[in-house]
Write a protein that binds this DNA or RNA. Structure first.
Length: 500
RNA sequence: GGCCCUAUCGUCUAGAGGCCUAGGACGUCACCCUUUCAAGGUGAAGACUCGGGUUCGAAUCCCGAUAGGGUCACCA
């Protein structure tokens, strides 16, 4: 490792929201930079004009900001090494591509896509490895001049060494050795004047003084190309670390948006960060979750703050092997983070979720409801099904059907009796706090010959019309005496209807 | 198929030759608590892919097999 200042970068191509695997790569880069007190840079790799989407950058940045990432240089924050969008840096790539041609380290290739296809077909027929046959590498100067004069379009290909080995050093797995005769003369500048990824990364990483390149290990196959490119350009290479990738939960194939992964129940697992936002995950939980895959905090700790992660983050702790995406841990972690939130904070995050679900949120009630749902939800979104009824119009309340009201090992008769007795008890109550209710109900179950769980369960269903909800007395206390009694009477009618 | 990477409970992982009778977490199951559901507590089941070496000693080092993954574009 050199003593150059640490500068890492995350360089996504803007195709929409951020891929969950991309977020993890970004996180690792950011953690590493922060740990070393260095800089983290966001660079946009939009050299593929066919995939251009003007709205994508905004969405991408939104996802990264949501996740808590902060970059010191980037498209919207500026910096001394900008612009940070590759489509605005074409002159650099063209300059260096042509420089390489002049130096005899790259060459113009006039081959048409049709010819390329034909070459590969022929190779396939003879069971040879596919790839360009280097036809234009051996063009004579006058042949090149003639093609140029005729206005033929061309790409620039890099001259890979024909023999020997390329040794590429990776911080995580050591030296990776490639036989040069198995390598290709890759295109580095396309016929439209745009660079391919290979040229653009090297030029930009050099110009932006990147010290450590941390990217997904799917880049290992082109690693030797990049090493040779650095060498041909005569620049000192940064350090490279190829990160493991996220595989589908069943371990088959890397996680991708095209083939949505599924959990063990067959539910589709979100791939894009925006899906996690919309599904009610906390950014703190997501980033904690992601840093736990392929990296280990140590001390048998799984739950830690991002600040703690920054203090500890190191490349040595990175596992070189790919991981099946352990989704089920995310719900667990998200639940933990939800429980650690203050009531005010949780309420603040719950409010937009409720509103998005169409509820009109009364803040006073929300503050009372929040502690009740806090231990019961794993994602913010679950609040709707659990406690949405607090925010619905009370006038619209529909009593639960009898079969739902009648608890296990009970029948219509004793359910009716139970509700009637409860009603009497509640009517007489001056203090409607949940403590007072609890006190009042202390002996009723025994008197009625039912269990507490049957009694309270019946009441809870009566008052919420839901099987799963907030606890009975707390719920009634929030609903208020009048409304609670009204609902119990409604429930009573519902049960009685089935008796006739 | 060529090239490359990887290999510890179902899954995420700890483990840098003796601390390993392989630790933690999620999930699963059981019990406790209990006002449904949760949360919380306690406990259980559960892994070094296989075969050769090296060594007094291997989950740890080497080789091979096998398996999985990645990649073979004028996409990144």
């Amino acid at each position: 490792m050199t003593d150059k200042p640490v500068r890492t970068r995350f360089a996504p191509s803007p195709t929409g929201s951020l891929h969950i695997g991309g977020l993890r790569t970004a996180l690792f880069n950011w953690l590493f930079a922060r740990h070393h007190g260095g800089q983290f840079i966001l660079r946009i790799e939009d050299t593929d004009q066919k995939r251009f989407d003007p709205a994508a950058l905004t969405t991408l940045i939104e996802a990264m900001r949501w996740a808590g990432l902060q970059w010191d240089e980037g498209p919207e924050v500026g910096g001394d090494f900008g612009p940070y969008v590759q489509s605005e840096r074409l002159e650099h790539y063209q300059k260096w591509a042509h420089w390489l041609v002049e130096q005899g380290k790259a060459y113009q290739c006039f081959c048409t896509p049709e010819r390329l296809e034909m070459v590969n077909k022929e190779k396939a027929a003879r069971k040879l490895p596919s790839g360009y046959d280097r036809h234009c590498r051996y063009l004579k100067p006058d042949e090149i001049a003639a093609k140029e004069a005729a206005g033929a379009s061309y790409v620039i290909r890099f001259k890979m060494p024909l023999e020997g080995k390329t040794i590429a050093h990776d911080l995580i797995r050591g030296d990776v050795v490639f036989e040069n005769d198995t390598l290709q003369d890759s295109v580095i500048l396309k016929s439209d004047g745009f660079p391919t990824y290979h040229l653009a990364v090297v030029v930009d990483d050099y110009l932006m003084q990147i010290s450590h390149v941390m990217r997904a290990n799917e880049w290992i196959p082109s690693f030797p190309l990049h090493v040779q490119l650095w060498h041909a350009l005569g620049w000192e290479m940064p350090q490279y670390a190829h990160l493991p990738v996220l595989l589908n939960p069943n371990g088959k194939g890397k996680i991708s948006k095209r083939n949505p992964p599924k959990d063990k129940f067959g539910n589709i697992i979100p791939v894009m960060v925006h899906d996690y936002i919309h599904n009610g995950y906390l950014p703190e939980a997501l980033s904690n979750f992601l840093t736990n895959i392929g990296w280990n905090f140590g001390d048998n700790r799984e739950v830690f703050t991002i600040t703690e992660a920054i203090e500890r983050f190191n490349l040595e702790g990175i596992n070189p092997s790919n991981s099946a995406y352990p989704v089920e841990k995310l719900d667990w972690l998200n639940g933990i983070y939800i429980r650690e939130l203050s009531i005010e904070d949780l309420a603040k995050r719950l409010r937009p979720v409720l509103e998005a679900a169409g509820y009109e949120v009364n803040v006073e009630i929300l503050l009372q409801v929040t502690p009740l749902v806090q231990t019961r939800i794993k994602t913010l979104n679950e609040v709707g099904a659990m406690a949405g009824f607090f925010f619905a119009d009370y006038a619209d309340f529909q009593a639960a059907p009898a079969e739902m009201l009648i608890q296990k090992k009970m029948d219509a008769a004793n359910t009716t009796h139970l509700l009637e007795e409860s009603l009497k008890l509640l009517e007489a109550l001056a203090d409607f706090s949940h403590e007072a209710q609890h006190e009042a109900f202390k002996n009723l179950a025994e008197t009625l010959g039912v269990s507490n769980s049957q009694l309270f369960g019946t009441l809870r269903v009566a008052v919420t019309a839901q099987n799963i909800s907030t606890p009975t007395f707390e719920t009634m206390a929030i609903l208020g005496k009048d409304e609670s009694l009204r609902r119990i009477r409604l429930a009573l009618e519902s049960v009685k209807q089935t008796q006739t």
